[in-house]
Amino acid sequence: MIDDVAKAYLHSCLRDVREAVLWKLDGLGEYDVRRPLTATGTNLLGLVKHLSVWEARYLGEVFGRPFPEPLPRWDDAEAAGSDMWATEQETRADVIDRYRRVWDHSDATITGLALDSPGQVPWWPRPRVTLFAVLVHVLSETNRHAGHADILREQIDGSTGTDAGDTGAQQGAAFWAVTRERIELAARAAGSTET
């Protein structure tokens, strides 16, 4: 019984965070969803592409259920990093639609297997895994990248929150200017005590 509750809870959390990641693209133009916003090139659409590739791999091939579309090989040095950005030929719709197809495939794996079902992750030091371990890993990684998306979106237009209904997160520019100034003053004061 607890396994069913745990699986349902983890699966629900994964579904929620997937939607939050996609919401970060809403209302932005092509340039803004693709442009590199960090020194390493991290961008919103690339995060979605990356999540789709790795979720397909973890909740597909790890359990002998390969995703029916081509994926770059995990051990191909030339393909390394190609999942972190979209080419000009890949449309936003292509990337998002693929992510949603991955969700359907992953959801079928989660629904169809017990939490203690065995899998094999050849790129891990201890490759023998269970659905529970992989589901927790995918949820953790998706949350991690959702945090990246939060920061990227805030850099673009100041939007924060998890969805359009998250109005509590939208405090307004004046509120955030005051908050930022308080934090800056505290940082300067702490920095002035360094020797």
Rank of each mutant, 00 (worst) to 15 (best):
A186Y: 01
A133T: 13
P118K: 15
R182V: 06
T91L: 05
N143P: 00
Q120K: 11
E19G: 04
H50I: 00
A146G: 09
E90Q: 15
V62T: 12
A86F: 05
V134P: 05
Q171I: 05
A169W: 08
D104F: 00
L59G: 06
Q170M: 12
D3A: 14
A164D: 14
E181N: 12
T109N: 07
L45N: 05
R128V: 13
Q155H: 13
L22G: 08
S52G: 14
D32C: 01
A189E: 13
L45A: 01
T109F: 07
R73H: 07
E184M: 03
Y99S: 07
P72Q: 02
V5Q: 13
D163K: 06
V5Y: 10
E194Q: 06
G161R: 02
I2W: 01
D83V: 09
A187G: 02
D166L: 07
H148G: 11
H137N: 09
I183L: 13
Q120D: 14
V178A: 15
Y99K: 00
V134G: 04
N43Y: 01
L135T: 09
R153K: 08
A108V: 03
E30V: 02
E88D: 14
L139F: 13
K7R: 15
V53Q: 02
V134K: 04
S106I: 00
L131I: 06
V121T: 07
I96V: 15
A189M: 02
T167V: 15
V136S: 09
L152T: 09
A20D: 11
Q171F: 02
N143Q: 10
M84N: 11
L131E: 12
Q155D: 15
E184I: 10
D26P: 02
L45D: 04
A8Y: 00
D107Q: 06
T179K: 08
D16V: 13
D26V: 10
E19S: 10
L14I: 07
G29H: 01
G64T: 03
S82E: 08
M84K: 12
D150L: 09
A86M: 05
A114E: 15
W123E: 10
A187V: 07
E30W: 02
I96K: 01
H137S: 07
R182G: 08
I2G: 04
W23C: 06
W124M: 07
V53Y: 01
S106M: 03
K24Y: 02
A173Q: 09
A20S: 14
D104A: 15
I110W: 03
Q89R: 12
D166I: 09
A169R: 14
Y9T: 15
T160Q: 13
D76Y: 03
R92K: 12
D75V: 01
V129K: 12
E141G: 07
A79S: 15
C13Y: 12
G60V: 03
A114T: 14
W103I: 06
R98V: 07
T109C: 14
V178Y: 10
M84A: 11
F63I: 01
S192Y: 00
R180A: 13
